[in-house]
Design a protein around this nucleic acid. Structure first.
Lengths: 345, 345
DNA sequence: TCCTTTATGTTAAACGATTAGATTTTGTTC
DNA sequence: GAACAAAATCTAATCGTTTAACATAAAGGA
């Protein structure tokens, strides 16, 4: 049991505890001779400073709280990995709180009140734990404004949208713009889009990117090609059927997530439509399965690691009293697979 | 900033700090009148005890360190979720350390020395943080014996095998036995198995379950039906080809993970063999994609949540000086999907 | 009435570090 | 070797709790 304290070191090295502390932290000059002596004793006794005592005195714990809506949702681990990557370099530690929202209240993304309690409890716990700051990881991107009273401790949000707080989110508009751009490069112009739940921020922004793209590339505009899904496979299936059975079927469909893209594929299969030869599909999220289904799905990969990293970076800047420069948004990257084909004229 | 201390509460409630402490912790009788007064002041001032000070005095932090080999590997988040679920109930907190092994040294599962450094650093950090104990989560099941010196702090392992320490692992033997049992119920008797890397513990144990099953059910034994893969899709593909092109092809294949099962499916497709009509497949892991590929893969679901929960439970028992009863191993469950068919005679 | 419990409080010493400010040692210069 | 400055080291207060030891008042028993 690591029950040796700075006093033991001081005694054995025949110096005061102050000197030992100075050696450890390099906060004052210590002669080479004593420094080496102290260091050797520390080594010998395998001494590690007691973090609780340090935190108490220093009034900072070098620990941040990470609140995850649900660690088992696909995007969360990768974001945690990013946070961790950065935290390691900054010598920060992560106190993880998992809200388990998917298990506790399901996927009712709009029911803010329902999880308010869980989130508030989590924040309160973390504050008691004296974290220096917090990062909130959404499991499903959406609005989340002024939810928490963090009693002055900084909090950075990621994978969600907030109004007054710092929030790290990828560029939704750019993502759908790039997807459409890729399709036009492949010769497509009759492009349909299946959105996620239409009241959600990412749906709105990605639709914005879509409009921007069809304007920029002067594509034909057909309101029938804009369908409102709900993120679930079933809606992808149903809406793809509508699209493909309509008098003016599109040659390509952009689904706002891979799950709906799978629904689209199922619809196409039922109608005897070959993918990608007769219909091209692009998804979103680069879910693991999108690589394994056949054909594999071309999809927009989300910069999850980067988001986590940047969130930690931003938090660290805030903690050091620096201004947080809200630079370029992290950007999605198209992963080319087998669900898109060059359009034969 | 939560800069109010127990002294402020004591002053405002006109009692000593001791009394406040007794009220908070219920460690001694306090008259109803003063108790209520103190509680009201605490409420009013929104006071939260300083955890660093508590930890220092109590010599325990109510915090455990969780060391994950790589949080982005499929099994890890679910295990963390289980740990978290239990920790919540015990009022314990989780300090997460992510070794990022997959990124840092790839999937060389056998190169124990390569990550020893990372793991030791992690343990050392956590000890400095004064965690009460630790849980180690493997990302790939394998032997891991006597790796860490935790200076007397208890450590529980999960998703890996150890010799002297407490380790929570599911029942590998039962899992493959059950898979074979299911296949025989469906009328299969010519059953092949594609193992993972043969020097790994789970491969060996699952082969044990396989042998047990063919003995118990008196199935024909053909050494050609036992193939040694390496967990990767390519090996599933290659070995399935060997099996299917042999003079005595099996009617069912048990692959020791879903990734290899996908390889098997690819091989079957190339050979024009219909799944499940001409060949049944069972995988392992219940990976997300196994539900989305077509046909969807019947697979053994690992009790990950339960493992996490039990690991936390075991650690808590150790911390309370209780004996850890190594009860039943968590058990895998077969998920019926579309890759297995009743064998037509 | 006196003594013993019991209930309720308070005082003050830890826990193990950090860090002003005081003190001692060393080095430099004449 | 004296005088002084600079460098090295030490003393002791402090961070915010917990808790053993002690103090006091009220209650109960003879």
């Amino acid at each position: 049991m690591s029950t040796i304290s700075i006093k033991d070191i001081a005694a054995k090295a025949q110096v005061s505890t102050a000197t030992v502390s100075y050696v450890i932290n390099g906060t004052r000059n210590v002669s080479r001779k004593t420094r080496e002596r102290v260091e050797q004793v520390i080594e010998e006794m395998n001494y590690k400073p007691n973090n609780a005592a340090q935190s108490l005195k220093r009034r900072r714990t070098n620990t941040i709280g990470v609140i995850a809506e649900d660690v088992t949702v696909f995007n969360v681990p990768e974001i945690i990995d990013g946070i961790n990557d950065c935290a390691d370099r900054l010598d920060m530690h992560i106190l993880l709180t998992n809200l388990r929202l998917d298990k506790r209240i399901g996927r009712q993304f709009d029911q803010v009140d329902a999880y308010r309690k869980y989130a508030e409890d989590a924040v309160s716990e973390l504050l008691g734990k004296q974290v220096d700051g917090m990062i909130y990881i959404g499991a499903h991107p959406r609005d989340l404004t002024g939810l928490f009273d963090t009693e002055g401790k900084p909090i950075v949000y990621t994978y969600c949208y907030t109004q007054n707080d710092v929030s790290i989110q990828y560029d939704d508009e750019q993502a759908s713009f790039e997807a459409i751009s890729y399709l036009t490069n492949k010769g497509h112009s009759r492009i349909a889009i299946i959105s996620g739940a239409v009241d959600s921020m990412p749906s709105r922004l990605r639709l914005g990117g879509f409009y921007k793209a069809i304007t920029a590339f002067e594509l034909p505009f057909n309101p029938q090609w804009i369908k409102m899904g709900d993120w679930e496979a079933e809606s992808g299936y149903r809406l793809a059927k509508e699209l493909l059975e309509s008098p003016e079927p599109p040659t390509a469909i952009l689904a706002m997530n891979d799950v709906m893209a799978v629904g689209v594929m199922r619809a196409a299969k039922e109608l005897g439509i070959q993918i990608p030869d007769q219909l091209s599909i692009i998804g979103f999220d680069n879910r693991e399965f999108s690589e394994y289904v056949s054909p594999s799905i071309t999809t927009m990969d989300l910069p999850l690691h980067e988001m986590g990293y940047k969130a930690m970076e931003a938090l660290s800047h805030i903690l050091q009293g620096e201004q947080v420069e809200t630079g370029e948004k992290p950007v999605c990257k198209l992963i080319e697979r087998d669900s898109v084909a060059e359009l034969a004229n």
